[in-house]
């Protein structure tokens, strides 16, 4: 599982972990039922304090992204729960906010942004089709 922690980011480390794991699950790179690395293992891999990882796991469990089974470890919970779509929308909302703010700053009209989105989607479909 490839997670990248950035110290430059103002966001606390545990929140970065939470966000990235949620993203991985939402984008399908983490499959439901897949086992998560142990707190200790992930801490060693990322070279952060295990307590931070523990806190991230706790929050993920609270949000229903992962489930902890006693003795066997932590596993990704199944997709399809209503929480999921909300999570996905949350991720997209952030990106949308950034895009809109930039458009405002660069003084580009909203309609141009919508057109741009359509064009980019066409392009992506063409590429994927090829």
């Amino acid at each position: 599982m490839q997670i990248h922690i950035s110290m430059e980011d103002r966001v606390p480390i545990y929140r970065q972990i939470v966000k990235q794991i949620k993203y991985l699950r939402a984008s399908g790179r983490l499959e439901p039922g897949e086992e998560m690395p142990t707190i200790r293992g992930l801490a060693e891999q990322l070279r952060v304090n295990p307590n931070t990882v523990a806190r991230a796991y706790l929050e993920l469990e609270k949000d229903g992204v992962v489930t902890k089974r006693h003795g066997t470890g932590t596993f990704v919970s199944d997709l399809g729960s209503p929480l999921d779509r909300r999570e996905k929308m949350k991720i997209l909302t952030e990106r949308a906010d950034t895009l809109l703010a930039e458009a405002e700053q660069l003084n580009i009209e909203f309609d141009a942004v919508i057109d741009l989105l359509r064009v980019r989607r066409e392009e992506m479909h063409v590429r994927v089709g090829k």
Binding site: A43, R47, V48, N49
Partner: peptide
Amino acid sequence: RRDILEAIIRTVA
């Protein structure tokens, strides 16, 4: 530095 940090984390865990 990475190696040392890893070793320290392992101790803590």
